[in-house]
């Protein structure tokens, strides 16, 4: 196993605001996390919780305006990505950090061949001559499990299925041997069997290449199968963070608990299997001054309305290193209350 103690990526106090006509939207508030070498960090949270925006903020992928990355630091191998020039940032994107997006049907340019699109980052970042880039492109396609790779270079995206296109997207993201691969719900748009295949592929690639991965998903089931550590997001904040086993065994935040209940059980009638969390996620029009989850929380009490809970350690390790949670309730009390509530 690679040395997880040395973080490849260390994010502190990330803040992203959208300036829209209707006012500001504080999509990411004070998000901090780190990613060890070869580690797979799962990021979960429902739609609108700020998963994509946080990860795109890291490498300047958000269009600005309206997006404004206001603060924090993003240290990648000791360099702060928020402080470097746009040019330097471009030499990081696609080279040191690869990105795979949710929808493979629209993420590839329809008018260029797959070969052209895979070779682009190779020519740009690694200054490969065309011949070498072509050879590498074939290698990459083989790596992501596309048969007959040599002849597929001249194919266009529309000639490929969704699952195949996502493999191509992964090949592009991995082209320059990145330190970090960010996969933003890469399997959500695919059907279940294809999803499983892509998951298998990523596990295998991780073994082979040893890059660190951030895997964004709605699906805790997926996370359980592949992540080392999990970060739960809500309302643009990290509400809980823990090693994967610990999180499933000992969830602290009321939101995490609710999420865990939404994992469909294997048996029982379909409707009953899938529980939903009541209520809507908040739209943050200002920096939060109270717990963002309070409107949906069954444990809410007066402090929750006055103070936005900071992250605090659950298991004694420093915040971010072990298990931490951002909730005013202390765990034993929460557990007790939850038992009463569900008795």
């Amino acid at each position: 196993m690679p040395d997880r103690a040395v973080p490849v990526l260390d994010v502190k106090g990330l803040k992203t605001v959208f300036r829209t006509r209707g006012g500001e939207i504080h999509a990411v508030n004070d998000v901090s996390f780190h990613l060890g070498k070869g580690e797979l960090l799962g990021v979960v949270g429902e739609s609108g919780s700020g998963k994509s925006v946080s990860m795109m903020s890291l490498i300047g992928l958000l269009p600005s305006p309206p997006a404004d990355v206001r603060g924090g630091s993003v240290m990648l191998n000791g360099r702060d990505l928020l402080k470097i020039s746009e040019d330097e940032l471009r030499s990081v994107r696609g080279a040191k950090v690869g990105f795979v997006f949710q929808d493979p049907m629209t993420s590839l340019n329809p008018v260029f061949t797959l070969g052209n699109q895979i070779m682009e980052p190779l020519i740009k970042h690694m200054k490969m001559p065309k011949k070498a880039a072509e050879a590498r492109a074939i290698e990459l396609l083989e790596l992501v499990g596309i048969p007959d790779a040599k002849n597929r270079l001249s194919a266009y995206p529309h000639q490929f299925s969704g699952g195949m296109r996502q493999r191509v997207m992964i090949a592009i993201a991995l082209a320059c041997d990145p330190d970090v691969l960010i996969a933003d719900e890469p399997t959500t748009a695919l059907d279940v069997t294809i999803q499983a295949q892509i998951l298998e592929l990523v596990k295998e690639l991780r073994q082979k290449l040893g890059m660190a991965i951030i895997w964004i998903t709605h699906d805790l089931g997926v996370i359980a199968g592949i992540a080392d550590r999990v970060m739960v997001m809500y309302g643009g904040q990290v509400v809980e963070q823990a090693p994967v086993r610990e999180l499933f065994a000992n969830p602290q935040h009321p939101y995490t608990r609710a999420l865990l209940k939404t994992i469909p059980a294997i048996s029982g009638p379909r409707e009953a299997r899938l529980k939903v969390i009541e209520g809507q996620p908040p739209i943050m029009t200002a920096a939060p001054t109270a717990c963002p989850f309070r409107d949906r929380c069954e444990y809410r009490f007066d402090t929750c309305d006055r103070v936005n809970p900071p992250r605090r350690a659950v298991d004694g390790a420093p915040v971010g290193q072990g298990h931490d949670v951002a909730c005013h309730w202390s765990a034993p009390a929460l557990a007790a209350l939850s038992e009463v509530a569900h008795a």
């Binding site: 997006f101 629209t106 008018v111 980052p121 740009k124």
Partner: peptide, 28 residues
């Protein structure tokens, strides 16, 4: 379009993103 974001995520220059990826599609 999503493919434009992909092009940016590859670290291509704005020039390439606009004059290659966007333009080629827009010209049709």
């Amino acid at each position: 379009m999503d493919y434009v974001r992909t092009a940016r995520a590859k670290g291509l220059s704005e020039r390439t993103v606009v004059l290659k990826h966007v333009l080629r599609n827009s010209l049709i």
